[in-house]
């Protein structure tokens, strides 16, 4: 009895002690490895490939941060998290950064004490149904059984959407994307709802993707981005500006093809500051001067990462849409490197 109490208390104390640790940047440098929280497997965003190597859009963010800090894009320990476990993993210090298509919301930012370091994908919640059901709008889904990933914002949006449209539904809470896929394909639910990008990624892995349609309604704003613990601003800055470096590089036309050439020096001072041949931006972040070049050397700029993992040439086939540069009508707008 006494032992149980002690063990229980130790566990709680251990959890909270880990959460209080600061100086993540030093920790990562000392460890020589970045612990990055990703999904348990969503093709295109974060999933191990045939060789067991993690690939994807969110994975690219992890690798870019690792390259910026440690100079090596493969010095990443990927920690798969579910919708339910991700915040505990980050708060307890198990992971340094969470790049798991997580929606930036007020309460997560303010109440859960996290810090979103930017948006790497502007998304919205959508619905996927089998074509044979003949549904063309989400408002026709009265009485449908809907699979949702539990512990996500989609769960709350879904409740609000059906309530405000005065239609009924039967929620089936599911832990991971893989389980949801299984239930959906077996017909245990009529509809699968999550972020539209996630739906496209899931559909791409189906045997016959053409048999399933995404409904036109997008019922929420889901700005997805990497997040870190609140209160460690130096580390937050590193992650924020690594993401900004990828976005700025696309805007300035720095690609993996011309990276080496441009790192030799150009006559555009912003490119020079980004790649570390001018100014002391790297030093200000507590990183080496060529941190930006390192970050870009892993998978190229934002546009290249997008095209390689989820772009129109991939099976997932997402258009840039809102995720185009601001100069091309999108929402991507990085503050200047100055």
């Amino acid at each position: 009895m006494k032992n149980t109490v002690i063990l229980g208390a130790l566990t709680i104390a251990g959890l909270s002690a880990g959460a209080a640790a600061a100086g993540t940047l030093d920790d990562v440098k000392a460890r020589g490895k970045l612990n990055c929280g990703v999904t348990t497997g969503l093709v295109g965003f974060a999933a191990p490939d045939a060789n067991g190597e993690w690939k994807g859009f969110d994975v690219a963010v992890c690798r870019a941060v690792a390259a910026a800090v440690l100079g090596d894009g493969s010095a990443v320990e990927f920690v798969p998290t579910t919708g339910k476990t991700r915040f505990t993993a980050l708060a307890s210090g198990e992971i340094d950064v969470l790049a798991r298509n997580t929606t930036w919301t007020f309460s997560r930012d303010v109440d859960l004490k996290f810090e979103f370091t930017g948006v790497n994908y502007y998304d919205g919640q959508g619905f996927m149904v089998p074509k044979e059901l003949g549904v063309s709008s989400a408002k026709e889904l009265d009485g449908a059984t809907v699979c949702i990933q539990t512990g996500t914002t989609t769960e709350l949006n879904l409740a609000d959407f059906f309530r405000s449209n005065n239609i009924s539904y039967e929620p089936v809470p599911i832990e991971t994307n893989a389980e949801a896929q299984q239930q959906y394909l077996a017909g245990a639910c009529d509809v699968y709802t999550t972020d539209a990008s996630g739906l496209a990624a899931t559909r791409a892995t189906f045997e016959s993707p053409a048999d399933h349609v995404l409904l036109p309604e997008i019922i929420s704003k889901e700005p997805l981005g990497p997040l870190v613990r609140h209160g460690d601003n130096e580390w937050g800055d590193v992650v924020r500006w690594t993401l900004n470096a990828l976005i700025t590089a696309e805007e300035l036309g720095v690609t993996s093809a011309n990276l080496a050439e441009m790192a030799g020096g150009t006559n555009n001072p912003e490119i020079n500051r980004l790649l570390g041949t001018e100014g002391t931006l790297g030093e200000m972040l507590g990183l080496s001067a060529d941190w930006g070049k390192n970050a870009l050397s892993v998978g190229g700029n934002y546009g290249e990462v997008f095209a390689d993992n989820i772009g129109e040439a991939t099976p997932i086939g997402l258009a840039r849409g809102l995720n185009a540069q601001w100069t091309e009508g999108g929402l991507l707008y990085s503050p200047p490197f100055r």
Binding site: L15, S16, F87, S107, G151, P173
Partner: peptide
């Protein structure tokens, strides 16, 4: 499950 996740009140 959901309450913990939405409110972040683990303890």
């Amino acid at each position: 499950g959901i309450t913990l996740n939405q409110t972040g009140r683990e303890l």
